[in-house]
Design a protein around this nucleic acid. Structure first.
Lengths: 218, 218
DNA sequence: CAGGCACGTAGAACACGTTCTATGGTGGGA
DNA sequence: TCCCACCATAGAACGTGTTCTACGTGCCTG
């Protein structure tokens, strides 16, 4: 790394929830134009990814679609996967809101958890190409210093904590973590064409039951 | 796909354990030279991967190391990730044998499972670059029609079934499946530099406890 | 033996992510 | 007002996985 180019390719939080932001005096702010450009890039990624999946998100096309120069993308994102990862953060946020809208159906905690996960799955199934693109980027080596993956984990945690509120906090944390892994692993399998949609929901349901049921009888 | 090149780029079994091999009359055998070449390719992948990780496994170098033409690689494997995936199948087999050598330590089923997984982790830690290369290939989109991933799943299943033999078969199956996902997800995190080794073993241990303990008291 | 086919080889060519070079514009401090 | 640091741009260039072209070789069959 001879010359320090790329002034701020990492305006996101760390994977481990430790310190959050810059310390003090220095203000690494962004001009409105920069934020605008950044958003246009993410939108372009959405657009291309929704149409043609991961392979269709080509950096040259992203540049054209977003009306910026190719090199400008790399000023904002360290790689294609980082860009898609940022897109995933946004997508996950929206998804979470939509899912959190309605309270989950189901009599037991496991059933409620399954309901939530199923709805999230269904939302992804509605945009399969885009979902695959985002997931594939996640599992890449350089999805940025972050990963929307932690975002996903947070989402599952926030929903899971509500549903599992009556459990011991340690147990709850472990259950949520495990579910996060099962979720991620299944999505990657699906995104890479090694698993079907039905199988994903099936495995998630089984996982919820085997994990939660034993702890869900007071 | 105009011309049917690539006579047999998939001499492995399907992800879903369904039909196993060719039906009857046709003998899709391989000549010894072909098997020899194939093995040389896998060995070359091991060698380069062990030295320099995923990025060092460059197809041109593999070709040179294995003393074959570049195009010949693609006659045997549909992609770099497919080649590494095949290498992983072999690696996993060896690993399994080594781990299965000794009976697992531990008083409870969870402790025994943790012991097994920890030993597998330790084995990977002894060849970190190679492990990362193989894992990264796994999580790629075109790791072949297969994935050594099913191989890994099978390994966990075979070991887990022994340790958890006293459990209800349905429960056992689900537990093993979940552990497979947790294992995979953690390895990918580690391979992509988003998780540390300690964290992987930690998460695996927690997962084993939260999953197995409730079912392990007769 | 002639022909053909399946496979291997050498090397060029291609695709796409990423980086580099040279240039232009803009805003804030001397 | 001038200048400089910074960012954006256009476009070439590079690296590496993958494919294509052309050719050679050995084996099986008619």
């Amino acid at each position: 790394m001879p010359s320090s180019n790329q002034p701020n390719a990492n305006p996101v939080v760390a994977d481990d929830p430790s310190v959050a932001e810059g310390q003090a005096g220095t203000e690494p702010e962004f001009t409105p134009e920069q934020l605008e450009r950044r958003q246009r890039l993410i939108d372009a990624a959405f657009e291309l990814g929704a149409e043609g999946g991961y392979d269709a998100v080509q950096m040259r096309d992203v540049a054209v679609t977003a009306n910026v120069a190719l090199a400008t993308i790399y000023r904002n994102f360290s790689s294609k996967d980082h860009l898609l990862s940022a897109a995933m953060v946004e997508w996950t946020g929206r998804l979470r809101n939509r899912v959190a809208q309605r309270p989950p159906k189901g009599d037991t905690a496991a059933e409620q958890m399954i309901d939530v996960l199923d709805r999230a799955c269904a939302a992804m199934a509605r945009q399969p190409k885009l979902s695959v693109a985002l997931i594939r980027a996640q599992s890449s080596a350089d999805a940025g210093p972050v990963g929307g993956r932690s975002e996903v984990r947070r989402s599952i945690a926030s929903m899971g904590d509500g549903i599992l509120a009556h459990l011991d906090p340690e147990v709850r944390r472990d259950i949520v973590a495990v579910l996060g892994h099962v979720w991620y692993s299944n999505l990657v399998s699906w995104a890479n064409g090694r698993s079907s949609f039905e199988r994903v929901t099936e495995e998630l349901a089984r996982a919820c039951h085997v994990l939660i049921d034993p702890y869900d009888q007071p």
